[in-house]
Simulated scan of single mutants.
Amino acid sequence: MTSTAMTLSHASNPKTNALTAMPSPVGNLDAYIRAVQQYPMLTEQEEQNLARRLRDEDDLDAARQLIVSHLRLVVSTARQYLGYGLPHADLIQEGNIGLMKAVKRFDPERGVRLVSFAMHWIKAEIHEYVLKNWRLVKVATTKAQRKLFFNLRSMKGNASHLDQAATESIATQLNVSEADVREMNMRLSGRDIALDPGPDVSDDDSYAPIDYLADDTMEPTAILEGRDRDNLQSTGLQHALGQLDDRSRHIVQSRWLADDSGATLQDLADEYGISAERVRQIEAKALKSLRSYLVPA
């Protein structure tokens, strides 16, 4: 009997019917916005009753009614962030996530309306989405930078350049340094550039970042060549010197591998009691042998 009476009561109340009916699928964003505008706002008493049902009984239908009655708030809030060039539908979707989080945490005993409580959560989700997707590289990471990011665009108006007076004024109002204002303005004024425009770009004069950001020292062939060179200058050279006789090795080391300026032909000639020409011949023959030992097999 009670169930029947409740059903009849709902049927006779168009406002209750609008809130309890499941939303119908819509084909585009405009249709969605028109649909959510049709859900009536709740009175304070209705809102508190639904919030208590959700809190005390874990009533998901009460949660749904709280959410659908505030979808228009998300649409209105998301519209304020269209200046960042992101899809309105995506902004609304993120805002709806914030609304659901707010409904889950809402306490009807605090004496605050859900519309005021939910605004923080809606904006927080939209802010996070904007910061993650407006640029490939994050433009704001600290709390102060986030505040500056979301206020600078509106405070500077249509001006493309901030003069000293405007920079000082914004820095004072937001309690940040002038350097932070100038840096954020530069980030907001910049745009993403493709690292490599791809094969479709036929302009021979184009100069993409990939052309000047590439690190040739990390190219695999260059790395292998460097390792071979280092090996020849250390282990390989010592092995090659070990193949020479004592006199030839001493002459090469004295002439080319000494820490100082190196010995002259005459110095070595006096040391071995031979002519300088003979020292030169021994040196030439030793260097030829070294080259053959150092050439990779």
Rank of each mutant, 00 (worst) to 15 (best):
L8T: 13
A11I: 12
P14M: 06
S24C: 03
S24Y: 04
N28Y: 03
R34G: 09
Y39R: 15
P40Q: 02
M41Q: 14
L42A: 03
E46R: 05
S69N: 06
H70M: 08
T77R: 04
G85L: 00
L86T: 02
L99Y: 01
A102Q: 03
D107W: 05
R113E: 07
V115T: 15
F117G: 02
K123A: 04
E128L: 05
L131I: 07
R135H: 13
R135M: 10
V137K: 06
K138A: 15
K143R: 11
K143D: 15
A144P: 06
R146K: 07
K147W: 01
M155P: 01
M155G: 07
M155V: 08
G157L: 03
N158S: 12
D163P: 00
A171V: 03
T172L: 12
L174G: 04
L174A: 02
N185F: 00
R187A: 11
S189N: 14
R191V: 14
R191K: 14
D196L: 04
D196Q: 05
P209Y: 02
D211K: 09
L213K: 05
A214L: 10
T217G: 10
A222M: 14
L224S: 14
D228R: 14
L232Q: 13
Q233C: 08
G236N: 08
H239D: 13
H239C: 09
D245C: 06
D246L: 08
S254Q: 06
R255F: 07
W256A: 10
W256L: 15
L257K: 02
L257D: 05
Q266M: 11
D267V: 04
S275Q: 05
E277P: 05
E277H: 09
V279L: 10
V279P: 04
R280V: 04
E283Y: 07
L287D: 01
L294D: 09
V295P: 00
A297T: 09
